[in-house]
């Protein structure tokens, strides 16, 4: 990959080259943006795993787009079955959907608690939880998450929020980045991230009689929109909805360098949010970066501006 490949994707390749993915039998990617598409090419070219598959993901959320995406998901299922000698039954898919929906429901409960004046968890802690969800077996993660939601809901712990912040933008997995912001006096009460609400927010339809592949493809195409989707207003509207529901004072918009989708959306999203009376701090950073001195200075200035605005 080249310097203009986003650092998230270069980070993925780095792990492959360091042989951290030796346990993998295959790699599946969506045609989401230039960098993962080319990562798939590199993966295939250098034969990192025997199975490599990329499925087309339309950029629109129309009926025609859904029909295409459904066939793509069906195609992926078929290829997995053929390549690994498996049969993926509808029953197994339904069980899996149920498990993952359980995660989404629990996360929704956790996020609901963050709407209170003094939430029980910090933004950094929530990101740690989300990170765990990417790594742990899902059933085990659900059990731990259930305990966390129960405990958090008892109201025994509260985190005072001087300013309620939303963090928005590219993939973010480093809790230290958010911790750095929160140490300065802001509390991240909600996110609008690839690795946050945009990943888990909407449920898959579990209604009896609904074909599971149909349900999955509908959900993944119509989910909380990624910046790659058209029209961008779908994403902006949902971001504004979050800002209102979580009573956000300011938004920190982080764009991983060369995350072109986010970069293009950035000025339009900023204007939309500022139209709602919510100031936006824009940060351009590398994936995995924590709060460097420069970022801390800018966040500090942003919080001071919020303070001046609020007259606190």
């Amino acid at each position: 990959m080249y310097i203009n490949t986003c650092s998230f994707v270069r980070g993925c390749l780095d792990l492959v080259l360091k042989k951290r993915y030796q346990f993998l039998d295959g790699f599946v990617s969506g045609s989401t943006c230039d960098c993962p598409r080319r990562l798939t090419d590199v993966w295939q070219h250098y034969d990192f795993t025997p199975f490599v598959y990329i499925l087309d993901v339309p950029r629109k959320m129309t009926q025609a787009a859904h029909a295409l995406y459904r066939e793509e998901v069906q195609g992926l299922k078929k290829r997995i079955e053929e390549s690994f000698g498996l049969h993926i039954s509808d029953e197994a898919l339904r069980r899996s959907i149920e498990t993952y929906n359980r995660t989404r429901t629990l996360l929704k409960k956790l996020y609901e608690l963050r709407k209170s004046d003094c939430p029980p968890v910090t933004g950094a802690e929530v990101l740690e939880v989300l990170d765990a969800g990417f790594k742990m077996p899902r059933e085990e993660f659900n059990r731990v998450l259930e305990r966390l939601v129960d405990e958090a809901g008892k109201g025994e712990r509260t985190v005072p929020a001087r300013f309620r912040l939303m963090i928005s933008g590219s993939p973010l997995n480093n809790p230290e980045f958010i911790r750095g912001i929160e140490e300065l006096g802001g509390l991240v009460v909600v996110d609008e991230l690839c690795t946050g609400v945009r990943h888990w927010w909407d449920l898959v339809d579990e209604s009896p009689g609904v074909d599971p592949v149909e349900a999955l493809s509908r959900r993944y195409l119509n989910n909380f929109p990624c910046p790659r989707m058209y029209p961008p207003e779908e994403r902006f509207d949902r971001a504004v909805q979050l800002v209102r529901e979580y009573r956000v004072d300011g938004v920190i918009s982080e764009v991983v360098r060369y995350c072109v989708h986010c970069a293009h959306d950035q000025p339009l999203l900023k204007r939309t949010l500022e139209g709602e009376g919510v100031p936006v701090l824009e940060l351009s950073l590398e994936y995995g970066a924590s709060g460097t001195g420069q970022i801390r200075t800018r966040v500090q200035a942003f919080l001071e501006m919020l303070e001046a605005r609020s007259g606190r």
Binding site: P227, P231, P232, V260, H261, H264, D265, L268
Partner: peptide, 9 residues
């Protein structure tokens, strides 16, 4: 991606 997104603005 640039051609895909540039049109919005």
């Amino acid at each position: 991606d640039n051609t895909a997104k540039g049109g919005n603005l």
